[in-house]
Amino acid sequence: MALLEVKDVTVHFRTKRGEVQALDRVSFALERGEALGLVGESGCGKTTLALTIMRLLAENARILGGHIWFKGTDLLALPEEAMRHVRWKGISMVFQAAMNALNPVYRVGDQIVEAILTHEPKVTVREARERVAELFRLVGLDPKRMDHYPHEFSGGMRQRAVIAMALACHPDVILADEPTTALDVIIQDRILHRLDEIRKQLNMSIIYISHDIAVIAEVADTVGVMYAGKLVEIGPTEAIFRRPHHPYTEGLMGAFPSVRGPKRELATIPGEPPNLLNPPSGCRFHPRCPYATARCKAEEPPLVPFEVGHLAACWHPRNA
């Protein structure tokens, strides 16, 4: 049994202009120690998915169906109090724009101590502080810094602190939502590698969420591609990069420059991502797809395996 299994999760948002269909029957599984990368344009539902797993969606969100099995229990059926214990102890999160994920009026160390004491009431303040010092060393921060306030940290240091916070209760899964987007490339790289090392060291699972396929390529074992609230392709990183099946994945590869590969023209995907208030019929990608046929417009393609562990939702798969 997988550590975390998301099954047919559908989420809508109620807004003034109508119902936004943010996630549509998304399914995937995550094994212990695995690093899954979720990639897609902004607004495709990546963050919504992370918040659904944590059950932290805004009030106007409705989960219309599906299950999220975590260690054999369905998180979507858990009472709020039990869910509270899963948060951080079972699944923790590195926030998008980590700059703002630290409360400006409390010391950084105290904010991590707070998380530890909430989930492990038997730990004393002193022990918790020792653990924070250890975590600081682990992510490459000076432990003396734990009594500083967030505004005294640089962007990179804050990011490290937020990662340290995510590790505080030894979670099984970490959801890293754009963990390094706001940082410059060198620090980005350093932090990603550190996180990857820590994952291997502690045998945790991580879901990386990013719009930057280069980041995902570097650290993920498995890659899931999302488009307009749907998971359109998922498979081993190698396979996804070498033999993408879904035309969108193919376009995505073309849209990102590669330093290592041969030089080529940077292609773009024409058109705009669809409005989720009223998504296209059939395959949601068909209005932008160069290979689209009448069938794509009429019928929705299911997510089916083309090779072992490599699934795609497309009527006209490439490289198959």
Partner: peptide, 12 residues
């Protein structure tokens, strides 16, 4: 974000 983060930490 820090309020969302506080909720995510599993604080009551």
């Amino acid at each position: 974000d820090y309020v969302l983060a506080a909720k995510a930490k599993g604080l009551p």
